[in-house]
Each structure stands twice: as structure tokens, then as C-alpha cells.
Design a protein around this nucleic acid. Structure first.
Length: 352
DNA sequence: CGGCTTTGACCGGCGC
DNA sequence: GCGCCGGTCAAAGCCG
């Protein structure tokens, strides 16, 4: 147990970058209250660590349009996830691998701030912790599945390739939360050491291989853990607001398409993300302290319950921040974005 | 009737 | 080699 805990904390620091935008995708897609957001490392694509929160933040900085989108009065359906290009296929960021390795750093004091050392160990944080632990298990398994015998398996029709995963916790009474996409349940399994089953969903779009797993936290049954795997290759079938803020997939441009809500996160975002992380690593900036309280998104989702809290949300806070950097393009990369607000200026100095 | 869920079976990886 | 486990398949059933 103790060991597990250690590993978990280690993992916290390895949360990683799957792809720059995965958390963003989810964050922007979810209208329900989030307790935590984090990327899941995924060794298949790149040994990586994810930034989780910061990842999200950085991306937000780069994609204000998304948050502009979110800022609009919520319709009955949450904004659809936007999607960066499938990291495994279309746009394998060359730098990603490098940086990911860099980011695969061992636990730092900061890591504990994420999982447990916060002065105020709120319930949410505990949940986050729990979730991280869970994800670590998951990740380990993923690693196990990926690592072994390339020689062996690849022959067999290239072993099923795993996509980067991204998990988050949601406080909700309903298991399957609306996220703007349509999902088909294809399996359900009992979860070891948990009274709650895990459900497996697949995006109903034929060409879209996105999957998600939904399970309840055994620690807190009110917490739903949703793990997304893969990235949508199509616009959300549910366009809450007429799809006005879509970002062209594969275009890398933002906020211009009216045809889709998805977007492609430019590769460089990842590097920017890494910059955040490096900063964090180097300076051990306890950015978690700076984060708004629990990620409770108030919601107008159709789901009956999805919501319990209407407190100022992290997303809203993020919006405020990121909407200031409009007209995004690559130049945004120079912008500190949320970093300006979350990381004290003196800590940002090293940013060249 | 199409789309979805349910659920038992199956498969592959891993640890012992 | 065996058993466990996570993940997936696919037939059957349900529902609008």
C-alpha cells in the first residue's frame, strides 16, 4: 500500500503529455462538474508525462476560442470535445518524444502538492489522489501491454494501438455524462476491488475510434471517473451553439470554421506545455495552490444530476485568463497565458 | 427497424 | 502452465 502510494505520487509527476490537447479536449467538452483533470501518460506513443492541469491551462491559453466558446451561455448540451490530430498518426510531433522524456522526471516535492501535500487536503484533492492512483494502475497496465514483445505482437496485425488517454473525475450521479458526442456501450466489467462496474464506450462515428471508460470511484461513489482514449476525428454530432466556434481539424487554425467543433492542437502546444512543466519542475512552483478550488463546472447538461455545484469554476477562471489572448496563432506561444496568472511572475522569469 | 444496452464468452498479457 | 484480469466481441434483447 505504501509502495503503491509512492508509486502514485511518482506517477503524479509523470502525468503526462500524451498529446498536448487531450485534457483540453475533455475540459472543453465537459460541462459537468469536474473534480480533477489529468492526462494519462501513454508510453505507446511517447514516453510521456502529462501535465494534466497545466496542460489544460496552457492549451487554453493557446486556444482562447475554445474558451470563448465555453463562455457563451450554456445551451442544453455541453460543448463538444475538440480534437487535436491523432498523435499516433497524422502529426507525430517530433519534439514530443524528446520533451516527453524530459518530462518523465521523478517525483518532486511538487508532486506531493498535487496529490497530498496541499495544506488543505480537501476532499477533492483526495479524490484526485485516488484517481491518480487508479490511473497509475491503469497506466502500468498500459505499459505492460505496450512494452512487451514488440517482436511478438506486431506480427499479429500490429497489436492494437492505444491512444493517449485522458481521465478526469466528475462528481455526478449519472455514470455516463453528456459530452456532446454519441457513444455506444460495448462492454462492462466488474472492477477489481470496487463494487462498481466499469463501462466501455466507443464513439458511434464509424471513423472515430475514440473510446471511453466510465467507472465510479470506489472511495466516493459520487465520483465518476471517465477515461477517454483517442481523439475524435469528426465534429461533435451535437452542436450546442450551431458550431460556431469549431476549429478545423487538421488545419491547425482556430476559431474560423463553422463546420466543426473540433480542432487540431498545434504541435507546439506540447512544447509549450512542457515549458510549463519544466518550470514547475525547476522551480517547484506549487501551482496547485494557485488553482481555483475544485473544478466544479456548473452545468446545464441534460443529465439529470450533473451538478451540484455552482461555484465559480475553474473553467470560468481559465476563460477569464485565456480569453485575453485572442486571435490565437503560433504567436501565442510567446504569450504566457495562464502562466502569467498561475505562476508568479518571478517564477516565470526563466521563460527566456 | 435501427440504434443501443446487456452480458457472457473470448482473447491476450502478466505474474506466480 | 495456469489463473487472473482488463479489454473486446457479438448475440440477444430492449426501446422509441
Amino acid at each position: 500500500m505504501e509502495r503503491k502510494q509512492e508509486a502514485m505520487e511518482m506517477e503524479n509527476m509523470m502525468i503526462g503529455t500524451t498529446t498536448s490537447s487531450f485534457s483540453d479536449q475533455i475540459a472543453s467538452s465537459t460541462n459537468y462538474p469536474l473534480s480533477s483533470i489529468f492526462d494519462m501518460p501513454f508510453e505507446a506513443d511517447q514516453k510521456g508525462s502529462s501535465l494534466g492541469f497545466m496542460d489544460l491551462l496552457g492549451i487554453q491559453d493557446l486556444c482562447p476560442s475554445i474558451f470563448d466558446f465555453l463562455q457563451q451561455p450554456p445551451s442544453s448540451v455541453p460543448p463538444p470535445p475538440h480534437q487535436p490530430p491523432p498523435p499516433t498518426s497524422s502529426v507525430p510531433p517530433p519534439s514530443l518524444t524528446e520533451t516527453s522524456e524530459v518530462l518523465n522526471f521523478p517525483a518532486t516535492p511538487n508532486s506531493s502538492s498535487i496529490s497530498s501535500s496541499s495544506t488543505e487536503a480537501t476532499n477533492d484533492e483526495q479524490q484526485t489522489k485516488a484517481i491518480l492512483e487508479q490511473d497509475q494502475e491503469d497506466q502500468e497496465k498500459t505499459k505492460k501491454q505496450l512494452k512487451p514483445n514488440n517482436n511478438n505482437k506486431q506480427n499479429k496485425n500490429q497489436k492494437r494501438q492505444r491512444q493517449p488517454r485522458f481521465a478526469f473525475m466528475t462528481k455526478s450521479e449519472v455514470d455516463h455524462l453528456e459530452d456532446g458526442y454519441r457513444w455506444r456501450k460495448y462492454g462492462q466489467k466488474a472492477v477489481k476491488n470496487s463494487p462498481f462496474p466499469r463501462s466501455y464506450y466507443r464513439c458511434t462515428s464509424a471513423t472515430c475510434g475514440v473510446k471511453k471508460r466510465v467507472e465510479r470511484s470506489c472511495d466516493d461513489p459520487t465520483i465518476v471517473v471517465t477515461t477517454y482514449e483517442g481523439q475524435h476525428t469528426h465534429p461533435s454530432p451535437v452542436m450546442p451553439r450551431g458550431g460556431t466556434t469549431g476549429i478545423q481539424p487538421d488545419s491547425g487554425s482556430f476559431g474560423t470554421s463553422s463546420a466543426t467543433s473540433s480542432f487540431v492542437m498545434p504541435i507546439h502546444i506540447t512544447t509549450q506545455t512542457h515549458r510549463y512543466q519544466q518550470q514547475r519542475q525547476q522551480q517547484q512552483s506549487p501551482y496547485f495552490y494557485n488553482l481555483p478550488p475544485p473544478l466544479n463546472f456548473s452545468t446545464a447538461s441534460s443529465s439529470s444530476t450533473s451538478t451540484s455545484s455552482a461555484s465559480p469554476t475553474f473553467l470560468q477562471a481559465a476563460e477569464r485568463r485565456f480569453c485575453t489572448s485572442s486571435s490565437s496563432n503560433s504567436s501565442l506561444l510567446r504569450d504566457h497565458g495562464l502562466l502569467q496568472d498561475i505562476v508568479p511572475s518571478d517564477m516565470r522569469k526563466e521563460d527566456h
